[in-house]
Amino acid sequence: MLRPDDFDYLAKLLKERSGLVITPDKAYLLESRLTPVARQRNLKSIEEVVAKMRGRDESLARDVTEAMTTNESFFFRDTKPFDQFRDTVLPQVMASRAAKKSIRIWSAACSSGQEAYSLAMLLKENAARLAGWHVEIIGTDISVEMLEKAKAGLYSQFEVQRGLPIQFLVKYFKKKDESWQIDSSLRGMVQFREWNLLHELRGLGSFDIVFCRNVLIYFDQPTKSRVLENISRQMPPDGFLFLGGAETVLGISDRFKPVPNQRGIYCLSAGAAPAAATAPVGAGR
């Protein structure tokens, strides 16, 4: 059982670094996720982990944050947002960008990359419609470990069976030992970058379509508002934001409003600040 002062120390650190809110009823998460971190560093307990962190062990603090913020992800999660993307949002964005023929899509808090690659697969399936277009997909996450997995595009048999249609597995994956690796052409369509949603986002540039699903649920109200405000500054006035099924902007931020008849999709409210200029590739951390 974690001592109250150790719990408070961890909760404060996680809130500051990632926005993650851990309440006492979720203390079991600290036990289950930090025990492997302790073991990896030959520490006997989570108390020892905390003691070492109090001695300003930056790399340990980073590992602890990563372990706590790593969340599960799967291909075509919830299905409907991907149908909405293909059938409603993409055609609208293409119509408004017809002169520029360029679209930037952001998978925020992308974890091990399944959402970004699901979008890449949909774009590949619609390649004829997108001929002559430049489409960028950027996946960002706070966890270096998850980003490494995303870049490798290597998934277990279990992971490729949750949400991924079998035709897409055959078409876009190759078997590599007991795992499945996503095709190099799809890996080439997505850039993964380490980024903390609580930090300045301007270096990422402007995005026409933002997926930030099942992320806000882990934050408290002020952090949700701050993240939504930050995201809104990275979008043009006619951009679209996808949130998770259990998330909303209502009562949290007046910078976005729901798109009528499109559950889970939001656009900027009139008067929200215009998007930041697109940063040069490689900017930010």
């Binding site: 069976q161 249609p165 035709q167 597995l169 055959v170 078997k175």
Partner: peptide, 27 residues
């Protein structure tokens, strides 16, 4: 049977989906 060749053969024969064992209720 969890190789591409078997999966392709199944799709060609008219299978709608394909589960590779072991499976669970979630899959």
């Amino acid at each position: 049977e969890n190789d591409i060749e078997h999966i392709q053969e199944a799709i060609l024969a008219g299978a709608n989906e394909y589960i590779m064992k072991p499976f669970d209720s979630e899959i």
